[in-house]
């Protein structure tokens, strides 16, 4: 059975209640904790880019994507591509929260033969639609899926999360140009704009600005929102559904390393190792927030 909490109730009733948003916020914060537990225990992970994408992925997997949690290949499912493939462990934690994989499987991250490869991998893990990490390619495949879905006459939507630095790839703009031509209104791109890339700030890079205007000029409907605001994300997904005749991009303004003060906006936390002292400090920040949200659980 394909289902999701909010997308199944279109029209006036789509809007999430405060309790629902609270629950998603709780889930996001507990996913953050799960992520840090995993990184601390198993030693590795892209901390910054995973922590910036958590709210985007939680809101997608709990409130937007129609999936069958018992069948990853259910034919009429929505298609989701994490084009920023280095956000893998963040996505795996969301999969665990959603019950698609067992939490204990996170212990196998990056091990020989593991389903949970270092970058998301569709050959190893059926919940992943496309192997990514060679940046700039996911949006093209999502576009192909969107065109294919429409050819089949099916109400299937294609979603693609990109990194901000990833959009320096020319392939992204080839796909952007074509998506407008094909009027792919069942395609939603979400750019995790955390303002840093790799081990460096984006100021030293060729400028992507004016970023929103670029997408507009390419014929896209653009929604620019704070990317850790669950309510804003859900409203943007709903708005994208209502757009006809053009694809939508959500520019989600996020914070790299969000939720752990010493990681936030720090280029050295693209990767990084969490020592016991740093782990304790992170928990001392996350656990009070979790306690505050406990009533929404």
């Amino acid at each position: 059975m394909l289902s999701n909490a909010l997308t199944d109730r279109e029209g006036a009733r789509w809007a999430p209640t405060d309790a629902e948003i609270g629950r998603f916020r709780y889930l996001a914060e507990s996913t953050r904790k799960l992520f840090l537990d995993t990184v601390f225990r198993y030693g590795r992970g892209h901390c910054g880019p995973c922590l910036s994408e958590i709210e985007i992925l939680i809101s997608l997997y709990f409130a937007e994507l129609r999936i069958d949690e018992r069948d990853p290949k259910s034919p009429d499912r929505d298609r989701f591509i994490l084009s920023k493939g280095h956000g893998a462990l963040g996505l795996y934690c969301v999969f665990a929260q959603r019950g698609l994989i067992e939490t204990k499987e996170l212990a196998t991250f990056e091990a020989l033969g593991a389903r949970l490869q270092g970058h998301v991998d569709s050959i190893h893990l059926p919940w992943v639609e496309l192997t990514t990490g060679s940046l700039g390619q996911g949006l093209s495949v999502a576009l192909g899926m969107a065109i294919g879905a429409r050819r089949l006459g099916k109400d299937i939507r294609a979603y693609c999360v990109l990194g901000d630095g990833e959009t320096q790839e020319g392939n992204v703009w080839e796909a952007a140009m074509a998506a407008a031509k094909f009027k792919a209104d069942n395609l939603l791109a979400i750019v995790d704009w955390n303002g840093l890339q790799g081990g460096i700030t984006m100021e030293v890079m060729p400028s992507l600005e004016p970023f929103a205007a670029k997408w507009q000029a390419f014929g896209w409907h653009v929604i620019d929102i704070p990317g850790h605001d669950i309510g804003a994300l859900l409203a943007a997904y709903h708005e994208a559904r209502m757009v006809r005749g053009k694809p939508t991009v959500i520019i989600a303004r996020t914070v790299k390393g969000k939720g752990v003060s010493y990681m936030e906006n720090q280029v050295e936390w693209h990767g990084g190792t969490v020592t016991p002292a740093l782990y304790d400090q992170a928990m001392s920040e996350i656990e009070p927030r979790l306690a505050q949200l406990e009533s929404y659980r």
Binding site: R79, E129, L130, G136, Q137, G138, L139, S140, V141, A142, L143, G144, M145, A146, I147, G148, A149, R151, L152, A158, G170, N171, E174, A175, M177, A178
Partner: peptide, 15 residues
Amino acid sequence: QNMIGVAAGLAMMGF
């Protein structure tokens, strides 16, 4: 580059 990506997406949808 986009041609190959779009073709891959179409193939994944059964075309």
